[in-house]
Simulated assay, not measured.
Amino acid sequence: MSSPVTSPKRQAQSEESIKAAEHASKAKRRARRAPYWLIAASIGILLVGTGYPTAWQLVTSTQSYGLAQQFGAAAEFIGLQNYIDLLSDAEFWQVVGRSLVFCFVVAGLTLVLGLAFALLMNAVNKAVRLILQISMLLAWAMPIVASMTVWTWLFDTRRGVVNYLLDKIPGVDMYRFDWFASPWTFFLMAGIIVTWMSVPFVAFSIFAGLTQVSDEVLEASALDGASNSQRLRLIILPMIKPVIAIVMLLQVIWDLRVFAQIKILQDAGASGSKFDLLGTYIYKVGTGSNDFASAAAASVIVLILTISISWWYVRKLMKEED
């Protein structure tokens, strides 16, 4: 018995259905690939911008590269000797330890103050919030050199406003006190300045996270009898924890590599290796001593240290989420 012949109309409908299914399948594949293309573009731009400098640092760190090589002389390959010299140098380890302490203390203080300002902006009315936001934006947008000029005037030994105000406190003698003479007061001053410059970013980032906290959840907790401190500790902070974690990581990385503020303060009156952090140490080794190979090796060590801290921190966050 022969099978019935398919009508032309039904055959056309079947072909259209097949084409529609193929088109939908292709559209789904393109949609799945779109994020990867966007990520690939970002990675490509990052590699172009940082790939060559990083490769140059890696190659130079294995050579004997000084002032003569800057003018075209051939660089001698010496392998890991620059790293061996650095890692056996007690002064380098002192700078590393000092930089780690400085970055974690300043980053922690910045996070606490930024969180406080974010909570304040979230609690006040629109007019006060606008004043706070404009004030922090002005502090954040001010160029580093301009703001550092003001700060050096404030801490000036002879005409500084800080010494003048502190000297007015009964029992406190701050007349012509030199903030640049001791590493303790120097890094205290530097920590205040770096924190002041970083707090706006942290405050705005956390405030953005606070706006995503549901008002219904907070109202329900208030009806259940939760106090303000309990709502902050048990509801608000856990909900904005991802934002706080990323902000803290960024602050540690930035404060570990701080350079401009320390260099300007050193130029204002502090001198000697005991006032160095990693940024100024690398600058002095490279530019001051014309030992660009050792400076490149120190830069690679800082890069490895930064990646290690970031990797440990991210792994810890992922374990907590699991």
Rank of each mutant, 00 (worst) to 15 (best):
M1D: 12
M1K: 13
S7E: 01
P8E: 03
P8L: 02
R10A: 15
Q13V: 12
K19Y: 04
K19T: 06
A21V: 10
H23A: 14
H23T: 13
S25N: 11
K26S: 06
A27N: 13
R29C: 02
R30I: 12
R33F: 13
P35H: 08
L38Y: 12
A41P: 07
A41R: 07
G44K: 08
I45R: 10
G49E: 10
T50M: 08
T50I: 04
Y52A: 11
W56E: 15
Q57V: 14
L58W: 10
V59H: 07
T60F: 07
T60V: 15
S61Y: 06
T62C: 08
Q63A: 02
S64W: 09
Y65Q: 00
L67C: 02
A68P: 04
Q70C: 09
Q70H: 09
A73M: 09
A75I: 03
A75M: 06
E76M: 00
D89Y: 08
F92R: 11
R98A: 00
R98P: 02
S99P: 05
F104M: 08
G108I: 11
L109S: 04
L113N: 04
G114S: 00
F117V: 15
A118N: 01
V124C: 13
K126I: 07
A127P: 06
A127M: 12
V128R: 14
R129G: 02
L130S: 15
L130M: 14
I131N: 10
M136D: 12
L137A: 09
A139L: 13
P143C: 07
I144H: 07
I144G: 09
V150G: 09
V150F: 12
T152L: 14
W153L: 10
W153M: 11
W153Y: 13
D156M: 10
T157Y: 09
R158E: 14
R159A: 13
G160P: 01
N163C: 05
Y164E: 12
P170Q: 07
G171W: 09
M174T: 00
M174H: 00
D178Q: 00
P183F: 01
W184H: 11
F187P: 06
L188N: 10
A190F: 03
G191E: 05
I193L: 08
W196D: 05
S198E: 09
S198R: 09
F204M: 11
F204L: 12
A208C: 00
L210T: 03
L210I: 00
Q212E: 09
V213D: 01
V213I: 06
A222M: 12
L223W: 03
I235N: 00
M239C: 03
M239W: 01
I240K: 02
V243R: 06
I246F: 07
V247W: 02
L250R: 04
L250G: 05
Q251W: 01
V252L: 13
I253N: 04
L256P: 01
L256G: 01
Q261H: 03
I262D: 00
K263W: 15
K263S: 15
I264N: 02
A268Y: 10
A270G: 00
S271R: 09
G272A: 03
K274I: 11
F275C: 06
G279D: 02
V285Y: 00
G286W: 02
T287H: 14
T287F: 15
S289T: 12
F292P: 08
S294Y: 08
A298R: 08
A298M: 15
I301P: 08
W311V: 15
W311P: 11
V314G: 12
K316C: 12
L317F: 10
